[in-house]
Design a protein around this nucleic acid. Structure first.
Lengths: 154, 154
DNA sequence: CTTTTATTGTTCCATTTGGAACAATATGCG
DNA sequence: CGCATATTGTTCCAAATGGAACAATAAAAG
């Protein structure tokens, strides 16, 4: 094929919005993810964990699983590795013996900051063709849909 | 935590658009993906293959890898399984001994049609809060960004 | 209080995944 | 032409992944 247009599928696919969303997600995340893995040795669940804990004071592993839509065992493993590496702290919840409250450490926060750069940079590349107004519109509409999605499965 | 707002991260994250895009992608794809795996026994690379071949006349495995941003070996495996199951045909390219041209069969097309329903339905649920105009705007802006992304890495 | 039922975090295990190396073919360049 | 380099599809292998079962704890029901 080669000289046929590989992007025609954006219009012909049966689920155009879903396709474009996942395409954009892949376009942003895959390159950033590879670089993060290569430069920091982190797998996806690990930096998701960092991102969550950077933005909430204390979370249980279950919270993180819910926020990120990943299975609990994946998060559990990430927690252990990050604990070993000193990127987070864990304290048993005094009110509920089943759960433990996770907090990010200073070095975890620092690591997350460095990792965010990769994602932010790639995001800006991919969205670079949009005007300021277009980008703001896109962002607002995505937030509206994302809030709806969050509510859908609670 | 539990009664804190789990969605505040939409605004506080360092890469808001990237976060919202991947959140939406996950919100749409994960539930649909689980159902497709459960009901049809297909892994992601397999229905991506079907989707690609449903919308192009003939593709090489490499083309599919490029379109879908997946590693070649993942596609290669999917091709073998789909060949065994009769969902696609393969013919060596007469002009290039390295590559083979893949085409979807009637039963493959039928399978893809049934699978699309899952994605389309979930897409419509997630985007259900948007008005017709908002959805059209979102769709157009995503297409613009996606076309840019496609061009970025060629 | 006792008995079910639900939730949390973990381990087990089979499957999926993707990087790296590979053989086969093609292309570029002297 | 002959040799280096690139590309395609594949296999190998180590790692990541996620469903299922589990023990510990909590909540609900009787």
């Amino acid at each position: 094929m080669a000289n046929e247009d590989l992007t025609q599928i954006f219009d012909t696919i049966e689920y155009p919005e879903a396709y474009r969303i996942t395409y954009l997600a892949n376009a942003i995340v895959f390159p950033a993810y590879s670089a993060i893995k290569k430069d920091f040795g982190l797998v996806r669940a690990e930096y998701i964990l960092l991102a969550c804990l950077s933005h909430f004071d204390a979370l249980t592993a279950q919270d993180v699983a819910r926020i990120s839509r990943r299975p609990r065992n994946t998060i559990s493993r990430a927690v252990h590795r990050m604990l070993d590496d000193g990127y987070l702290d864990r304290a048993p919840d005094p009110d509920d013996g089943r759960q433990a409250r996770l907090r990010i450490t200073a070095s975890g926060r620092d690591l997350h900051f460095r990792i965010s750069e990769y994602l932010r940079r790639r995001q800006d590349e991919v969205l670079g063709t949009l005007s300021k107004e277009e980008r703001a519109t896109l962002s607002a509409l995505m937030k509206k849909a994302a809030l709806n999605a969050a509510q859908l499965d609670e």
